[in-house]
């Protein structure tokens, strides 16, 4: 299984609950092996298996929780 890493910048993470929500939500997707959400840098780094999940799906999940992800 080859993994890839992608980073989303989510400027509207505004409190400590936000990174936790995003982490929990992303981890529910298949093929996600690690999520690191950092409130200070507003960056969310995801290690995933591209054969099981796409960045578009991650983006959708983030948006469903009310955040606006920007891929960088």
């Amino acid at each position: 299984m080859s993994t890839q890493t992608t980073t989303f910048t989510i400027p509207d993470m505004h409190c400590e609950s936000c990174p936790k929500v995003i982490k929990i939500s992303l981890e529910e997707l298949p093929g996600i092996s690690a999520v690191n959400a950092d409130l200070a840098t507003k960056n969310v780094t995801v290690i995933y298996d591209p054969s099981k999940v796409t960045t578009a799906q991650m983006s959708t999940v983030i948006k469903e929780n009310g955040y606006t992800p920007q891929t960088s």
Partner: peptide
């Protein structure tokens, strides 16, 4: 709880 994220966090956990 102070914002909508808190609601979601508690519910999801």
């Amino acid at each position: 709880m102070h914002c909508a994220s808190c609601e979601i966090l508690i519910e999801k956990r």
